[in-house]
Design a protein around this nucleic acid. Structure first.
Length: 379
RNA sequence: GGCGCUAUCGUCUAGAGGCCCAGGACAGGUGGUUCUCAGCCAUCAGACCGGGGUUCGAAUCCCCGUAGCGCUACCA
């Protein structure tokens, strides 16, 4: 049975690239009827924080992913890693260097494996230095804890970013040292910023949380991330994770790094906004309007008296019907609809000219507008 | 520097030797519809990194170059 895992480090928010890795692992598990597991790589005690883990799990759920077992925490398994390293030392395959344990890389070997997305990859062991297994402070290195835990969790397929390609031969050597058959590896290309450089803040956000806050719908983000690296056979572009899961094939994964295109994400988001029923959008829209100060913040409003000042759903729904075709993100909505939440309507010259143009046959309205213009002292 | 991965329109991609004077989507241009915007409809422009091979035939295979990215940590 297929068992895959997503292994975040709780040292920051969920990166957009990590989110994609998680999605594809989930896709593969769901496609094959296997298990999608979580492992918390919190070996860096100083940088790991519980609040980051909470945020990461929340974002994964938000994106529509679910996992099959309780997450494994690496910070609770330090004694296991040390014991495992001890086995290798006893077998003469590793040695203690001060308080650290290093793996002896066998010379003159070609370490090869068949990558699920890239095909055959090989590297000469002579280009590898001896690998640290256990650091002087007793904590394990990434590559070592990774192998120990993947074996422990019975992981059959490892789908991760291209940045781990160079780690794989090292890990393959560890499996060999333990007499284990390594899992299958598949490395997916990294996501780059629009200018081809490493994805960073200036490209429009690197964390899932930022897109959530901007008013992107999770189905749009998930859909876009899936598209960035895989195209279904039938060429469709809009799909839910569940639909993608029914079509997914690792062999079809792209092996080319892709640039993150905010325009296309925005287009997808707009499509999902238009398709979403108002009941689903309303709570989100409320939050954005409240954040913009256009309506009272429902979450912090007093329970009793002020019902008269709260805007009814029916009213918001009408506004939404008018404007959801124009907004590419929910955060764009408030400036577009602010006039529906004000008591005065200052008109600029263009607006006045347009509404009072002779093309309008409604003389009565024109008259009213003139009066309005005269009354512009409000502004 | 060493090792590795990659290379089709601005972007995401289709293309697994002839079906391709390269198809789709986003973005862009133009026109139409509309009292504005958005939308919708129509339409245009836009690419096989360079050079060598292999082959009757290459975007597709091989080699070299170039470029981008990754790794080269007692970070993960």
């Amino acid at each position: 049975m297929v068992r895959v895992r997503f292994a975040p480090s709780p040292t920051g928010f969920l990166h957009i690239g990590s989110a994609r890795t998680a999605i594809f692992n989930w896709l593969y598990a769901r496609r094959t009827g296997g298990k999608f597991l979580l492992r918390v790589e919190d070996t860096d005690l100083k940088r790991s924080e519980a609040r980051f883990l909470d945020e990461i799990l929340e974002d994964l759920s938000w994106l529509g992913l679910d996992w099959d077992e309780e997450p494994l925490f690496q910070s609770r398994r330090f004694d296991v890693y040390r014991a495992k390293a001890g086995e290798l030392v006893a077998a003469g395959l590793a040695y203690r260097d001060g308080d650290a344990v290093l793996f002896r890389v066998p010379p003159g070997r070609t370490v090869a494996y068949d990558d699920l997305v890239h095909g055959p990859i090989s590297v000469a062991s002579d280009t590898l230095k001896d690998q640290v297994l256990i650091k002087s402070d007793g904590s394990p290195t990434y590559n070592f804890s990774c192998v120990v835990d993947d074996a422990h969790m019975g992981i059959t397929h490892i789908l991760r970013g291209d940045d781990h390609i160079s780690n794989t031969p090292k890990q393959a050597l560890f499996y060999e040292a333990f007499g284990l058959t390594p899992p299958r590896f598949g490395h997916m290309p990294l996501i780059l910023g629009a200018d081809g450089s490493k994805l960073s803040k200036r490209h429009g956000g690197v964390s899932v949380e930022e897109y959530k806050r901007e008013g992107f719908l999770p189905e749009a983000l998930a859909n876009y991330l899936i598209l960035l690296g895989w195209t279904p056979r039938d060429g469709r572009e809009m799909m839910t994770p569940a639909e993608a899961a029914s079509l997914f094939d690792i062999a079809e994964m792209n092996d080319v790094q892709a640039k993150f295109d905010l325009q296309k994400l925005r287009w997808l988001n707009a499509e999902y906004i238009v398709k979403s029923p108002n009941e689903r959008l309303l709570p989100l829209v409320r939050a954005h309007l409240a954040a913009a100060g256009l309506i009272a913040d429902s979450s912090s409003a007093p329970v009793s008296s002020s019902s008269s000042s709260s805007v009814p759903d029916a009213y918001l729904a009408k506004v939404l019907d008018l404007y959801k075709v124009r907004a590419k993100t929910l955060s764009e909505l408030p400036p577009m609809v602010d006039l529906f939440f004000r008591d005065y309507f200052p008109l600029d010259e263009d607006g006045l000219k347009h509404l009072a143009s002779p093309q309008r046959q409604d003389g009565r309205l024109r008259q009213e507008l003139r009066e309005l213009a005269g009354a512009e002292v409000w502004k």
